[in-house]
Nucleic acid binder design. Structure first.
Length: 198
DNA sequence: CTTGAGATGTTT
DNA sequence: AACATCTCAAGA
């Protein structure tokens, strides 16, 4: 088990969001191992980002983990039924994170099929809440370090710059024009195949 | 393939 | 009232 070191996340949020593509997110939640190859992320770059939960240094019980160490998991509950998972970036005290938006199942696919009953493999983790569900991520993991079990990132084959695409973030109004969504070109495991505008 | 509505609870 | 979403049903 060679987890990426916490230092990987102690860099600019955009760099982390880009370079996370291709690495593996591994889960042993519930005792069964499964993993996805990360193919889609979004950067929430901090207090100056209107779409960020910590915009203008907003701080609350929900986003407290964003103010912690890089490499911690920030899990939040949204739309009354979905969990979404981020990895905290930058330095301690500076609230920024990368949202994990899309993954390609590469290990323990049966486990994920059970959690995502009835959906084709392309849709097992093609969206932030789908990915969280597939890997068994809930609020119980809020604040967990992604350098160790039961959820961590393992080094994989990075997706090179030519095979990466940048697009507008999904589902945000403020800060909607920024191209802070990154995904692997041509992947069938991203939440949306193309950006609706530029 | 596309679009639109409803589910459902927390945060502002 | 909005929300970093998803699923299903209906239509083209």
């Amino acid at each position: 088990m060679s987890a990426l070191p916490a230092g990987f996340y102690a860099r600019t949020t955009v760099a982390v969001a880009r370079e996370l593509l291709g690495h593996r997110l591994v889960s042993t939640v519930g005792g069964r191992r499964c993993a996805v190859r990360i193919v889609e992320t979004e950067a929430y770059v901090g207090p100056d980002d209107p779409a960020c939960h910590a915009y203008a240094w907003h701080r609350s019980a929900r986003n407290e983990v964003m103010y912690g160490r890089p490499g911690l998991l920030y899990v939040y509950f949204t739309y009354g039924m979905h969990w979404c998972a981020n990895i905290v970036t930058e330095r301690s005290g500076y609230p920024a994170a990368v949202l994990l938006r899309g993954g390609e199942p590469v290990e323990g696919v049966e486990v994920m099929r059970r959690r995502r009953r009835g959906v084709p493999d392309e849709e097992i983790a093609s969206g932030p809440a789908k990915l969280a569900q597939a890997l068994g991520i809930t609020g119980a993991l809020d604040g967990h370090s992604v350098t160790r079990p039961p959820l961590w990132v393992e080094a994989g084959e990075p997706v090179g710059p030519r095979r990466r695409a940048a697009a507008r973030r999904v589902g945000v109004r403020r800060g909607a024009t920024d191209r802070l969504r990154f995904y692997e070109r041509g992947s069938r495991h991203v939440s949306r195949p193309r950006d609706s505008r530029g």
